[in-house]
Simulated scan of single mutants.
Amino acid sequence: MSLTIYHDGQFWVGIIEVVEDGKLRAFRYVFGAEPKDSEILDFIYYKLLNIINQSIHSGLDVKGKSNKKINPKRLQRQVAKEINKLGISTKAQEAMKQEYEEKKKSKKKRAKQYREQLKQQKYLMKKQKAKAKHKGK
């Protein structure tokens, strides 16, 4: 799991990337103003797990990494490269976009069900009114 915090021009944003069972899931959290260290720690301790657990998408497939021992100097270079890297990975962007699309589809589906339910209620009310008129009430 990795947490990347960057400034997107307007707000400070945190991107959480989680790899589980060969699937990458990414989440976006907007901090707003520049977060202090204490705010980041509060986020990690109290909000991070809730954000990860409320996810509805399965994630994107990621190539598995081998468990080969890495040369310490190479590892040091990789860490320095990650620290200097700005922004988020394209895989994370793709995962966030996929989650957004799935949320959008589910929201659309609920809205359609709600409209159908309202339509059915109006129809039943119309029928009751017609029966009442027919009975002379």
Rank of each mutant, 00 (worst) to 15 (best):
P72G: 00
L118V: 07
H134Y: 15
L49G: 12
R110A: 14
I52D: 02
V79P: 03
V13R: 02
K36E: 11
E20A: 05
Y46I: 01
E17M: 03
N50P: 13
S38T: 11
I40A: 01
V62A: 05
G32H: 04
I51M: 08
Q121E: 15
G59Q: 06
F11V: 07
K126H: 14
I16E: 10
K137C: 08
I88D: 00
A111S: 11
V18Q: 14
I44V: 15
L124A: 12
P72S: 02
G22V: 02
V30Y: 09
V13S: 02
K109W: 09
K69M: 07
F27C: 03
K69S: 12
A26G: 09
Q76Y: 02
A92C: 00
G64I: 08
L49K: 15
L49Q: 14
N53E: 13
A80Q: 08
I83C: 01
V19C: 05
S106T: 08
K108R: 14
Q98T: 14
E34V: 08
R115W: 07
K119S: 15
R74Q: 12
V79I: 13
Q78M: 12
M96T: 00
Q93F: 00
D21L: 13
K131V: 14
F31P: 00
K135N: 10
D37V: 14
E17I: 02
G87L: 04
K73Q: 05
I52W: 01
K68M: 09
G9I: 07
E17G: 10
D61P: 12
K65Y: 04
A111R: 14
K104T: 15
